[in-house]
Design a protein around this nucleic acid. Structure first.
Lengths: 162, 162
DNA sequence: CTGAGTCGGTTTGATTTTCCAACTAACTTG
DNA sequence: CAAGTTAGTTGGAAAATCAAACCGACTCAG
């Protein structure tokens, strides 16, 4: 049994699968994209993503329940809320950036699309490096590590802020 | 009209949305994860992801039609194929890595899960930097750029290999 | 040669999700 | 007072997904 095998019948439980349970539902990443771009209100998020309102409601509740976004009240009467990224939510930026960069390299077609830039003004050309060794992550440099659960202490700088 | 607004009724056409059309369908990223880990056969991909066989078939066809993976024949009688990442497919690694890193920071709970490492042996701690200015991408450093289509020349080092 | 097993699917029918348009409640604005 | 705004909810149809069974073309053990 090599390290990449799993038991005969159990899907591989890994952090990629876990992340997708929250971020992988339809419209979730697009809603987070909007908040990253400074759009915080329900109607505008619905329009800019194209999600139907009922599904968007459901996604925002899921994201909120996982601490990725929070509802911030901006009106008392009637009660009205804006959606804002938490620290956890802001840290999905590398996912969006990697996705945008991949897509702008490989998904070009006749459709005109908004591209993205780094705040320095340059076209998006992100480089992913390993904080430990400083080397760039090359395709194939992703390896399986050990099983991890809450029993393992979480570094203080990575503790969840709600 | 600020740069983050779209027309009253049109969703924002951007490269994030475009990428999600291919990579955002259920099971697509998990299938690509398996191929990244060296699992190339239908049955094993189905088992390791948990996808049902019919929708996995459909996903693999979609990924193939977008040039993200390719079918490689490994048996003539009966005809049997393995699924392999193309160059384009291998370059989704930063997306998977960013997702795994985010998830291992923010999605810890009682469930034991496989973690990932860089090939140097270190725990996954990726840093995303701008190739142009060398600065790290910070949350909020993603800005909208201009509209782009195929009319724009694609850099030679980014041309699609099939 | 027979029977079991493997592999990569396809088929079937039930379940779940998503979509869309309309509707609502509680306001604000002209 | 009528119209508009905002953040949803509701209902019914359409689409996607699910699980399990089935299939054809093989291989392999006995």
């Amino acid at each position: 049994m090599t390290p990449t095998d799993t038991a005969r019948d159990a899907p591989r439980a890994c952090f990629i699968a876990a992340g997708l349970e929250v971020l992988g539902e339809r419209w979730a990443l697009l809603a987070l994209r909007e908040m990253s771009l400074g759009v915080h209100r329900f109607d505008q998020i619905a329009r800019n993503t194209g999600a139907s309102r009922d599904i968007l409601t459901s996604r925002l509740r899921t994201l909120e329940s996982h601490g990725v976004i929070e509802r911030v009240q901006y009106s008392e009467h009637p009660p009205r809320h804006e959606y804002h990224l938490t620290t956890s939510g802001a840290e999905i930026a590398p996912i969006l950036i990697s996705l945008a960069a991949w897509s702008s390299t490989w998904m070009r077609d006749e459709t005109p699309r908004a591209s993205y830039r780094h705040s320095c003004g340059a076209d998006l050309e992100p480089v992913l490096t390993c904080a430990e060794c400083g080397e760039e992550f090359r395709p194939g440099s992703l390896m399986l590590g050990p099983l991890v659960s809450t029993a393992d202490p979480v570094p203080v700088n990575q503790q969840r802020q709600i």
